[in-house]
Simulated assay, not measured.
Amino acid sequence: MVEAEQPSTARMIDYWLGGEHHAAVDVAAATAFEGAYGPCAPVFRELRAFLGRAVRSMVADGMDSFLVFGAGVPTRGNVHEVAAEASVLYTDVDPVTIRLGQRILAGSDRAGYGFGDATDIGTVDPAQLHRFVPGWGRRPVGVVFLGVAAFLDDETVARTLDEVYAAAAPGSRLAVDFDGTDLAAYPQALAMMGPAYRMREPAVMRSLLGRWVPTGEGIVPVARWRPEGEPVAVPDAFHGGVAVRAD
């Protein structure tokens, strides 16, 4: 049972994905948001599908361990379920989400969950990093940075991604997303996101990657990043891509 007095975006997404790890307060918040915006489940299913395609592409490029920031609930097609042979360290800053993730992953020998502030890689437990992301800084790994940039200002995003670039080994891959300007047409829903929420145009998104070099697809609506067949018709709420640490 999730111990929660306040709604959590991570658990709201679990609800929209059809998961089981959310509380009544999360369902109420999700329902209120849908009343202001519209159905969210298709949008978040496509974001999760993008994560799956991005992770599979990184595995194909040789990544066998992953560091995930702002991980949320580690289920419903999350990294360790997609990359079945890889090791994964999930991190978040919300203590309730961390405890939930640790319960879900209890007994796993290749996936762990711990505290990690996406804006300060030094907050990740070195012991967990060594166990679940072996070779960090010495050989290529996959870094997942989804659902994080929308709550950071431009300067912080650019600094953070550059620090991750410097810490990761050459050849590492970064899966990243940004929230587009879709919510601008829904002022009530936009207000629910709080003052820290940031929407960005694709050109801004590319500049914030700094030294990370996007793959040929660039930064595009997530449903259009290497779709398996025709892209699913959903609002362009999220843009994303995979980028490479080239040197």
Rank of each mutant, 00 (worst) to 15 (best):
V244N: 07
D61C: 10
A60P: 04
A106M: 03
R53N: 11
P227L: 02
A167Y: 06
T160P: 09
P195K: 11
V59K: 04
E5P: 00
A10T: 06
D117E: 15
G229D: 10
A203H: 14
G171N: 08
R53F: 07
D120W: 09
A203N: 13
G72F: 03
V43H: 00
A149M: 00
W16P: 08
D179C: 13
A71N: 01
P231T: 09
G194Y: 03
S65C: 13
V144G: 03
F69R: 04
L100V: 14
G241E: 02
D153M: 04
L47Y: 00
V55E: 01
G101S: 08
A175F: 03
P170Y: 05
V232Q: 08
G70I: 07
P140S: 07
A191Q: 14
I13W: 08
F44I: 00
F238A: 06
D154W: 06
G19T: 06
T181R: 15
V43L: 10
L161G: 12
V43T: 07
F69S: 10
S108G: 03
E230P: 13
I219Q: 07
A10F: 04
G114L: 07
M58W: 05
D117N: 15
A150S: 13
R131E: 15
R48L: 02
Q188I: 08
W16H: 06
G114H: 10
I13Y: 13
T156R: 14
T31V: 10
R103P: 03
S8A: 06
M193D: 01
A29V: 04
P195W: 00
L161K: 09
Y113T: 06
A167S: 12
D162K: 11
A237D: 02
L51D: 06
P39V: 12
L146K: 01
E3Y: 10
G210K: 09
A189C: 08
A83S: 07
L105I: 09
L129R: 13
G52Y: 01
Y113I: 12
R200E: 02
V242D: 03
A54P: 11
R11M: 02
Q128S: 14
I121Q: 14
R103I: 00
A233T: 12
